[in-house]
């Protein structure tokens, strides 16, 4: 069990890099009578990029929201660098310093400029020095290729640009794991590419990523491992090559035949 009172990025846990960075074990989650997750288990090693795919309503978004404690779980365990997410006394700030999340609908703060969106959380939540944060934020703006858009408000940016600001905003917290919840689903087709490129670069730099996506081509190219969920269970998983070309389960086959 982790010691939640420690501060700093994961320094106080007994987690070591040879253990899974995110370890999900037998997770059950219901909304009222509706059981969305019926015992899901998966491990993500440091530097790995995994994709979760599956039909809508199969529980993939719920799963990664649980990793970030946006949804609580009824049963099972989720360990993030040794930190138990299902612990009622969980220090949520400690968790959220480790885990960054990007949403389908960007969810930028519309009353703040792009750069302010990026700088807000480190200043108010982490109480970091303003100048250092500004410097970091500027390098992140460059990283997501939005130079010149620093002082634009979200309402003045395209969907793809907003989504890249959202990615930069998460990165500003220097997380160890990034969660991407169908980040391209709300975008125009022409802007999907720019967001995917940004994510790919992140993955290649060694960021641990968990993606929920419908972009099969992207998943195949970027992911180390693919998980297919249906009706709240992981039906099949494997490395991209074997998964896409040599699926065993009939449900996976059917899904892939519809989507590819």
């Amino acid at each position: 069990m982790a010691s939640p009172s420690q501060s700093g990025n994961g320094s106080g846990t007994n987690w070591t890099p040879d253990q899974p960075m995110v370890s999900i074990k037998d997770v059950h989650k219901s909304f009222g009578d509706l059981e969305v997750l019926k015992g899901v288990s998966l491990d993500v090693m440091k530097g790995e990029c995994i994709c979760i795919i599956g039909p809508s309503g199969s529980g993939k978004s719920t799963l990664i929201r649980c990793v970030n404690a946006l949804n609580d779980i009824q049963q099972g365990s989720i360990l993030v660098e040794g930190l138990e997410v299902n612990d009622p006394n969980l220090d949520k700030l400690e968790l959220r310093k480790k885990v960054g999340m990007v949403f389908q609908q960007y969810n930028l703060f519309p009353h703040k400029t792009a750069i302010e969106n990026i700088m807000m959380a480190p200043i108010t939540v982490l109480k970091q020095d303003k100048d250092e944060v500004a410097e970091h934020a500027n390098s992140l703006i460059k990283k997501v290729r939005l130079e010149g858009k620093e002082n634009s408000y979200p309402g003045e940016l395209s969907g793809g640009q907003q989504q890249r600001v959202a990615i930069a905003r998460s990165l500003a917290m220097s997380p160890d794991v990034m969660l991407f919840d169908e980040v391209t689903a709300a975008l125009d087709p022409e802007t999907v590419k720019e967001v995917l490129n940004t994510i790919q670069e992140l993955a290649e730099e060694g960021m641990t990523c968990i993606l929920v996506t419908h972009e099969m081509g992207f998943a195949r190219e970027v992911a180390n491992h693919i998980y297919f969920t249906d009706f709240g269970l992981i039906v099949e998983h494997g490395a991209p090559a074997t998964f896409f070309d040599d699926a065993k389960d009939p449900r996976t086959k059917e899904f892939l035949s519809q989507i590819l």
């Binding site: 959220r96 999340m101 949403f103 969810n107 703060f109 939540v125 982490l126």
Partner: peptide, 14 residues
């Protein structure tokens, strides 16, 4: 929107 509040809490806001 609830989702904007969620984004804030995902960034560690109380």
């Amino acid at each position: 929107p609830e989702s904007t509040v969620e984004a804030a809490s995902a960034l560690g806001y109380t």
